[in-house]
Simulated scan of single mutants.
Amino acid sequence: MSASFASALGAARAAAGAQHYPEGALYVVATPIGNLADISMRALHLLGLADAVACEDTRHTQTLLRAYGIDKPGTALLAVHQHNETEAAQAVLERLRLGQRVAYASDAGTPGVSDPGARLVAAVRAAGHAVVPLPGASSVTALLSAAGAVDDDPGFVFAGFLPAKAGERDSAVAALALERRAVVVLEAPHRIAALAASLAVLGERPVTVGRELTKQFEEIATLPCAGFSAWLQAGPQRGRGEFALALHPVARVVDSDEPLRVLRLLLAELPLKSAVKLAAEITGAPRNTLYEAALQLKDATRG
């Protein structure tokens, strides 16, 4: 165990030990995406408490546990990964039927978000056992929080890993070009150059690139999609590490008079919120702006 985590483990027991952890339940545990300090106190306590830990890679998870001072015998680690998830779920279910607490951790981040875990959770729920999430690190939310991908309409799309084959990847990018909202994409280092080439068709649309998030050589940069390939080629280290990308929302080009004309016509026939929603979809004008205009139009009508 690293000496720096000795006090953390004790603090985790003190902070989370009094909470209730039902037996016969699956605990979905988020683990750090790079920085070992990004572990929650509840996760530390539960990983020590669990009768078994199902994980994507038993060797990786054993190393992680030992770094925190948690020692599990090899028999307590169950391999559950994308190639055996459906079958391995049966071993987890057997332990749950015996009343054991089973933690599930992927190699990094939150299980079931591009990582294995969703099929295991579905099988556990179908069998009537409880599933308890222990939230924590995620490359998706980490990148979005630093991207500043501002839009009038909230929300984002998580696209995960795009297809590896060039034609399928280009088709996926073409579909993303039609998506107005921010889009988060993940990619591995050996495919990042190909993805950058495919994204070039999006031209000046901004993309925030997160490389090696939370790690020592973390880089976060916002640039046009057309310049992504050049950014990667600017240094030998740029193509290394895991990547999370956030395509920014598509900027709207709005005629100043047309949205108001459409809004007036719709307000004559529809309730205010419906009129605003349709006017925004028809004209591309920001919904908040149209809502304020609609309120002013209603007030003027009353006056």
Rank of each mutant, 00 (worst) to 15 (best):
R59G: 03
Q216I: 15
L290Y: 00
A3G: 07
V276T: 11
A300K: 15
I220E: 08
A280H: 12
K165C: 13
A197H: 13
S7P: 04
L96W: 03
E179S: 07
S198V: 12
A251N: 07
D299K: 15
E94R: 09
A142V: 09
L78T: 00
G241P: 05
E179Q: 11
G160L: 06
F243A: 06
L270N: 13
L46E: 03
A67P: 01
Q82K: 15
K298T: 15
P206D: 07
V276Y: 10
G109F: 04
F228D: 01
A8E: 08
A76I: 00
V185A: 11
A123P: 01
Q216K: 13
L266T: 14
P249Q: 01
R252L: 03
V253E: 14
I192V: 15
G109H: 02
V113T: 10
A285N: 12
G128C: 04
E218A: 08
A244C: 08
F161H: 12
D151A: 15
G155E: 06
D255K: 12
A91G: 11
N84L: 05
G74S: 10
L290H: 00
S139R: 00
A15K: 13
A268I: 09
T63H: 06
L260I: 15
G109L: 00
Q82D: 15
E168W: 04
A164P: 04
S7E: 12
G203M: 08
G303R: 13
E219I: 15
L96C: 14
L267R: 14
R13D: 03
L93G: 11
R125G: 04
P73F: 00
R205I: 08
A149N: 12
A293H: 10
A196N: 03
H60T: 06
G210A: 01
A300Y: 13
E204G: 08
P249D: 05
N35Q: 11
L195N: 08
E219W: 12
G128Y: 03
V80K: 03
L46F: 03
A294C: 13
I220S: 09
L247Y: 10
N84P: 00
A159H: 05
L134W: 02
E218Q: 09
A246W: 03
P116Q: 01
L93I: 14
P271S: 13
A196Y: 01
Q237E: 15
L64K: 06
V254E: 02
L245G: 05
E187W: 04
E204L: 02
T222N: 14
G210K: 01
L64P: 08
P189Q: 14
I70H: 01
A280R: 11
R119D: 06
R302M: 05
L202H: 07
A43T: 05
N84Q: 07
L199T: 11
P249I: 05
A147Q: 12
F161R: 09
A172N: 04
L270I: 10
A275G: 14
L260R: 15
L143F: 00
S7R: 12
E87C: 05
A18H: 11
T61L: 01
P111M: 03
E269H: 13
Q62A: 14
L297F: 13
A200E: 15
P224S: 11
T31C: 05
R211C: 06
I33V: 10
D170I: 06
A149Q: 13
A194W: 04
